[in-house]
Design a protein around this nucleic acid. Structure first.
Lengths: 107, 107
DNA sequence: CAAGTAATTAAATGGTTGTTTAACTATTGA
DNA sequence: TCAATAGTTAAACAACCATTTAATTACTTG
């Protein structure tokens, strides 16, 4: 799951959250950099990561480049986590199997 | 969100998934290492990361140490992602604001 | 076309992460 | 108590990641 790794970094997570808030219109790179208070190259670096993970899309408008969140990708990440890390919808512990051998030490 | 970073690594994600499958009983470290096919020190390293993120708990039983997934922590991670990266429950794009200035170039 | 703006790419660098090998601690059982 | 087993901790090292500065591309407007 590439998208998981992409979001596991403060700057990228913050950037993505701003894009989510911005909706389908997205935000120009410069605007994002300003809001995140990071340099343009640093932002480019992180946006590249997000784009590579399929979490954001870029659309050029004149000399601006608008980035927007890909909600489908996010939803599929959420789906993956729910299924694989939560035993399905409700994040329930799997049924107990009743194993466990010897002298239990309740330290 | 420490747990996000903790899961953003293949070995740790795999380990966590095995623990989720194992349910509340958990798995002994050695068993985990065997299933993941990694060395004990490598596993220790990653379990330490997961534990530090609150995603797993350890319980000693004789000379075995059983690790189990913390489902509450996972659920709260899921909650965070849903709220912050998806505009709430349904992962819907935010309402369009109808901005956008000049000559649209539909390249 | 020249100057200016928006953004990316390139190169260098410091910091973090993951893996390995070796040494260590703790528990069990002969 | 000694040997064996389960696991962690420590130290060394390679690989990767994020930030910076400088250079470059692309678009717009005078």
């Amino acid at each position: 799951m590439k998208s998981l790794a992409a979001l596991a970094q403060d700057t990228r997570l913050d950037a993505f959250r701003l894009l989510v808030q911005a909706g389908p219109e997205g935000l120009a790179a410069g605007e994002l950099a300003a809001r995140l208070d990071i340099s343009p190259p640093a932002l480019s670096f992180h946006l590249r990561g997000l784009a590579h993970a399929g979490l954001v899309r870029a659309q050029q408008d004149g000399r601006f480049i608008y980035y927007s969140a890909d909600f489908d990708a996010m939803q599929s990440l959420l789906g993956f986590l729910t299924e694989n890390c939560c035993n399905g919808a409700a994040c329930t512990p799997a049924r107990a199997t009743g194993r466990r051998s010897s002298a239990r030490r309740t330290s």
